[in-house]
């Protein structure tokens, strides 16, 4: 019996040689338990060793294998070939990001934005080590846990037309992460972080398309984080008018 196959149309781009990316078709064996990443690995091992893409964990944890699969941002290690029968399957680099080579995009912009929202616990005064750890109740953990599940896969950016139209937008994952620390009972950095989330390129750029949350593989719901940050920002603004000395420390 002839082996079952499926075709992948993979975007190729050679820096400094190509003016534009182009699609190259590869026909690979079809296996029910193969994901798109397995098919790419097959191509790289057996057909064309120059095919370039990122991956690491192969289990939806590292967040490095994000690509556009049939136009939708996906973790390719979690996108089964069987869900795209009979093919062909279009595999492209994450949308809106500059392409370095083939399926590899430049993530510098995102890394910079992540740093800007200060995604770490800020304390006015650190407790001495002898005082032990900062403790939380289950309810305090619950308050931010969902937003802490982000694996920085950037699928939400590739789903966000606002990011595509105005690349300065801080974007879904970075805002969700900033919001996550604002919600953390151990954190005292709200007054430093919130102004960054609330600036012109922050939450107010968002028009609530909502696709970031739809594509997020970890159920983070960055769209909710953004809208709730808007509410917090609006509250701060009203308070600053009512109580010019600042209602919130």
């Amino acid at each position: 019996m002839a082996e079952e196959t499926i075709t992948l149309e993979v975007t190729r781009y050679r820096p400094r040689e190509d003016r534009e990316p182009r699609a190259q078709a590869f026909t690979v064996p079809y296996r029910k338990d193969w994901v798109v990443l397995d098919a790419l690995n097959h191509i790289k091992d057996r057909v064309d060793g120059t095919l370039t893409y990122r991956w690491s964990c192969r289990m939806g944890v590292c967040g490095s294998c994000g690509m556009m699969v049939n136009g939708v941002p996906k973790l390719t290690c979690a996108a089964f070939l069987r869900d795209y029968l009979p093919g062909p399957i279009r595999v492209e680099p994450l949308a809106y990001f500059p392409v370095i080579r083939d399926l590899v995009v430049d993530i510098e912009d995102f890394m910079g934005k992540l740093r800007r929202v200060m995604p770490w616990i800020i304390r006015r005064t650190e407790q001495p080590l002898t005082a032990g750890e900062y403790r939380q109740t289950p309810a305090q953990l619950e308050a931010y846990k969902q937003f802490s599940m982000c694996i920085n896969c950037m699928l939400c950016y590739a789903a966000c037309p606002v990011y595509g139209l105005s690349p300065l937008f801080i974007g879904p994952a970075a805002i969700a992460l900033g919001y996550r620390y604002n919600l953390d009972s151990r954190d005292e950095g709200y007054h430093l972080r919130q102004p960054i989330l609330a600036e012109a390129v922050g939450v107010w750029q968002c028009t609530f398309v909502g696709e970031c949350s739809a594509v997020c593989p970890k159920g983070v719901d960055p769209a909710a984080a953004i809208q709730r940050s808007k509410v917090a920002g609006a509250k701060d603004w009203f308070l600053s008018i009512l109580l010019p000395r600042g209602g919130r420390s």
Binding site: P15, R16, E20, A95, Y96, P98, V99, I100, G164, L165
Partner: peptide, 12 residues
Amino acid sequence: PAPRPGLYYPKM
């Protein structure tokens, strides 16, 4: 950020 040479910048 200034476009970096060699990278492909997709248009919307």
